[in-house]
Nucleic acid binder design. Structure first.
Length: 488
RNA sequence: CGGGCUGUAGCGCAGGGGCUAGCGCGCUUGGUUCGGGACCAAGAGAUCGGAGGGUCAAAUCCUCUCAGCCCGACCA
């Protein structure tokens, strides 16, 4: 067995990289911090895109496209926004061999260039709501990058909507958060906690940021998507007013929301194992691969049998592939397709042919079962559904097992370990989601971060009914219930 | 952007002043195999990360630089 994948217990970061490179999802590029997404990785993105795009359309949104270059002056119009993004901007200073009068930045996000146009397009309440989304690349000059999780350039979608009222914009913010939550869970098998960000962690320029937070296998949190209520901040910065139903001028209310190729990183980290990638059937480029076990004298018959099964699988809508390459041994193929994350394997050999059967093997559990050829296609479909469900449940119970209430600062230090402390070895035992009451003070967040590197990930929406007690960090009366974790 | 480690064939490594740079895996061709990473034979493949400097002689010594990983500060 060629040990191409570093086991998680040895080096979690290296394991993650090994999976991506060996499963051929992505590769490094000649440009620092940028990545090449290879066909197997891009296919996953296309499936995520397709599902999200469908849901955006179902909720009344339209796709549009805005330019990648944004005049620097636009960024500066919203004070908090520019302050938040300035450190990570890439700036274009020359074009056509000449220095530009005004430099352009490569979009880190498109609020400013979009709102500059919304000013032209919105005059009356009849123009609202404006529900646009764009699929695009953005660039944020990151100091430290990681494939899929944090790259200088990444692919995402960004929704930008304008509304008549605060209530409508807030409802839109929540609606899209819910779209993200359900796509994450149903499609990506990522159980997520939906919640509100603290002032410290919110998007630069937003009034309020909502998030879906997932837990990776190393128990660190990953922000998997965000939905922002922008209030009238951008409308004011770009002077976007409309005449309301009473005939008076008013600034419009806004939202923005996005998910990125980071989701692919989340899927990899949540489900995969030491044998390689594990993918939800909904995302897998191939849902099932048939490995024929051929011997010289039976080769033709076995391949014909495999072909017939392949046709039946395709007939019931399974994305199936026959690996008839005769230069690799079956054992090699088993390992190879497991590394690539194919959810189901079908083995067919002379024995099966004779018995009218075949062998199905699950990627998630390793479970092997012999089924008759007649019911193979139906059984495969059933198993794919079961795998989809199992991945979500497994991830959810992992998260629940590592979500614990913590009552005070000492408890936090014990739970997370101390910043700077070498956690190798202890890594397995420490960390997770610490749930505690919080007074609302940024000072508390800062001191926790300094002591343990853990931050306030969010205040879960469904856990705010019982907040009687004291802040788990400073002991003052609590105002919220929050989740704290180390994060990516 | 600071601290550490690493760059030698596609991948993993050895060689640490000496003449022709090795090994394993992978790759190509032919043959035998095939129910958990098969075997035999013959091949191809490297300006030793890059630039400069010293030396009769550099993969090996010196300076600079680039890239990757890890650890910190900053972030979807």
């Amino acid at each position: 067995m060629a040990d191409k994948i570093t086991p998680r217990s040895v080096d979690y970061s290296q394991w993650y990289i090994d999976i991506i490179l060996n499963a051929k999802l992505a590769d490094y590029s000649p440009v620092k911090g940028c990545m090449v997404i290879r066909p197997r990785g891009y296919a996953i993105w296309e499936r995520i895109q397709a599902e999200l795009d469908k849901r955006f359309k179902e909720t009344g949104h339209e796709n549009a496209y805005f330019p990648m270059l944004i005049p620097m002056s636009f960024l500066k119009k919203e004070a908090e926004h520019v302050e938040g993004f300035a450190p990570e901007l890439a700036v274009v200073t020359h074009g056509g061999g000449e220095e530009l009068d005004e430099p352009y930045c490569i979009r880190p996000t498109s609020e400013t260039i979009i709102w500059a146009k919304y000013k032209d397009w919105i005059q009356s309440w009849r123009d609202l709501p404006l529900l646009y989304n764009q699929w695009a690349n953005v660039m944020r000059w990151e100091k430290r990058t990681r494939l899929f999780l944090r790259t200088a350039e990444f692919l995402w979608q960004e929704g930008h909507t304008a509304h008549e009222t605060r209530e409508e914009a807030e409802a839109e913010t929540m609606r899209m958060l819910e779209v993200y939550r359900s796509v994450a869970e149903q499609h990506l098998c990522l159980p997520v906690v939906a919640g509100v960000k603290s002032e410290t962690e919110k998007f630069a320029g937003a009034v309020r940021t909502y998030t879906i937070e997932a837990m990776m296998q190393d128990k660190k949190a990953l922000q998997a998507g965000t939905s922002h209520f922008l209030g009238q901040n951008f409308a004011k910065a770009f002077d976007v007013q409309y005449q309301n139903r009473e005939g008076k001028l008013d600034h419009v209310w806004a939202t923005s929301w996005g998910v990125s190729t980071r989701l692919i990183g989340a899927v990899i980290m949540t489900h995969s194992d030491d044998k390689g990638l594990v993918l939800p059937p909904s995302l897998a480029p191939e849902q099932l691969v048939i490995v024929p076990i051929v011997k010289k004298d039976t080769q033709a018959a076995v391949l014909a049998y495999a072909d017939k099964l392949l046709a039946e699988l395709k007939g019931v809508g399974v994305r199936a592939k026959l690996d008839a390459d005769d230069s690799a041994s079956p054992g090699w193929k088993f390992a190879e397709w497991e590394m690539r994350g194919v959810p189901l394997r079908m083995e067919v050999g002379a024995r099966d042919l004779e018995a009218g059967k075949c062998v199905l093997v699950r990627r998630d559990t390793g479970e092997k079962l012999v089924v008759s050829a007649l019911e193979a296609a139906a059984k495969a479909r059933e198993l794919l559904d079961a795998i989809q469900q199992n991945l979500l449940e497994k991830a959810r119970s992992f998260r629940e097992a590592h979500t614990v209430p913590v009552a005070d600062f000492e408890g936090m230090k014990a739970f997370f370990g101390l910043a700077g402390e070498d956690l190798a070895g202890a890594e397995a035992a420490k960390g997770g989601f610490a749930e505690g009451l919080w007074c609302g003070s940024a000072t508390c967040e800062a001191s926790l971060k300094q002591a343990t590197k853990a931050t306030l990930r969010c205040m879960p929406l469904d856990r705010q009914d019982d907040i009687h007690g004291n802040c788990c960090l400073c002991g003052a009366p609590a105002k919220h219930r929050a989740i704290f974790a180390r994060n990516y």
